[in-house]
C-alpha cells in the first residue's frame, strides 16, 4: 500500500483505488447482490412491488425440488459437466505431457500455435463447425461408415454425445495449459530415475508425473467444470430437446418465462454448486489456494 502511494503519489493512488472500488462494487458485488435479492422475492406485477406481498421467501429455491424435469436437468448438467471434465482431462493430459516432457524444444512453438489457432475463431463458429462435422450426413459419419465402424450413419448431434464432444473441444486449452505449466517444471531426471528403478510408464505417471502436476490438474478441472456447467452455446447448438442444459432453463426463466426471480434463484443454485465443486476438487487433490495461484 505504502509502495503504491510512494510510486504514484496521493492523487493518482486515490484515483486508482476509486476506480478499483467502483469496478468491484458497481460491476461485481452490486449486480450479484441484486440477483440474490431477486431470488428470494416472489415474482409480482410492477404495481405490487414494494407492497405487502413483496416479502422474502424460499419459494423460488423450492421450485427446483418440486419441478421434476428441472431437477433432472440440474442433476444431468452436473454429471455431464463432470463427465466433460473427465474426458477433457483424459484428452489433454497426454497432450500436455507430450508438450512438456517429450517434444523437442524447437517444435514447441508450432504445437502451441496449432492448439491456439482454432481459438482465434469465435466459440459460436467453432461450435457450428462441430454441428456440421457431427451432422447426420456430415463428414464424420461418412468416414465412420467408410471405415466400416458403422453400417449406417448415426445421430451424433442433437444428443448428449454431441454436447460432450463439442464441450471437450471448446475447453481443451483451459485444461492443457495449466497441466502443461505444471509438468514443464518436472525434472526429466525424475522420470528417468523412476524408469531406471524399474517403473513402467503407468506407474511413472501415477507416482511421479500426476502428483507433480496436481495443482495444474486441479486448476484445469475447476475451469473446465465451471465453463461446462455454465455453458450455453454448445448445448443450445449441439444438443436437442432431450439433452437440455441447466443454463438453458435459467435462460428460459429470464427471457421466455419473464420470471427473473425464479431465474436468479436457479442461477444462484448453480453458482453455489460450482463453488462447492471447486472446494471439493481442492480437498480431493489436497491443494491449497496458494498452489493454484502458482
Amino acid at each position: 500500500m505504502t509502495e503504491v502511494l510512494r510510486r504514484y503519489g496521493p492523487v493518482l493512488t486515490t484515483v486508482i483505488l476509486l476506480a478499483v472500488a467502483v469496478w468491484i462494487v458497481g460491476l461485481v458485488v452490486l449486480p450479484q447482490v441484486l440477483m440474490v435479492d431477486f431470488s428470494f422475492r416472489p415474482m409480482l406485477p410492477p404495481a405490487k412491488i414494494g407492497g405487502p406481498e413483496d416479502v422474502y421467501t424460499l419459494k423460488n429455491y423450492a421450485t427446483l425440488w418440486t419441478n421434476e424435469v428441472h431437477r433432472a436437468i440440474f442433476v444431468k448438467t452436473i454429471w455431464a459437466s463432470a463427465l466433460v471434465t473427465a474426458v477433457t482431462f483424459a484428452v489433454c493430459y497426454p497432450i500436455a505431457f507430450y508438450m512438456a516432457q517429450v517434444a523437442p524444444r524447437r517444435r514447441l512453438p508450432m504445437l502451441v500455435l496449432m492448439l491456439v489457432v482454432p481459438f482465434w475463431i469465435n466459440e459460436l463458429l467453432r461450435t457450428f463447425a462441430w454441428y456440421i462435422i457431427l451432422a447426420y450426413s456430415g463428414p464424420l459419419n461418412i468416414l465412420l461408415v467408410a471405415l466400416g465402424i458403422f453400417t449406417e450413419p448415426q445421430r451424433l448431434s442433437g444428443g448428449d454425445v454431441g454436447v460432450i464432444v463439442g464441450m471437450v473441444y471448446v475447453y481443451i486449452l483451459f485444461m492443457v495449459f495449466p497441466i502443461y505449466n505444471a509438468l514443464e517444471s518436472l525434472d526429466r531426471h525424475q522420470i528417468e530415475a523412476a524408469r531406471d528403478l524399474g517403473a513402467g510408464w503407468l506407474r511413472i505417471h501415477r507416482r511421479i508425473a500426476i502428483p507433480h502436476a496436481k495443482p495444474g490438474i486441479a486448476v484445469g478441472c475447476i475451469m473446465t467444470f465451471m465453463l461446462a456447467a455454465g455453458s450455453y452455446a454448445v448445448p443450445a447448438l449441439l444438443g436437442g430437446p432431450q439433452s437440455r442444459w441447466f443454463t438453458e432453463v435459467i435462460y428460459n426463466w429470464f427471457f421466455e418465462g419473464g420470471n427473473w426471480n425464479q431465474g436468479a434463484a436457479y442461477a444462484f443454485i448453480l453458482l453455489v454448486l460450482c463453488v462447492g465443486f471447486i472446494l471439493l476438487m481442492m480437498k480431493l487433490f489436497r491443494v491449497g489456494l496458494t498452489d493454484i495461484a502458482k
Binding site: 528417468e192 530415475a193 531406471d196 528403478l197
Partner: peptide, 20 residues
Amino acid sequence: IGPNKRPTALIFQNLALFPL
C-alpha cells in the same frame, strides 16, 4: 532392453530424488 529391465541402477548428477 530398456533401463527399467537392466540390472543397473543410476545415480544422477542432481540425484533426482522424488521431492513429493
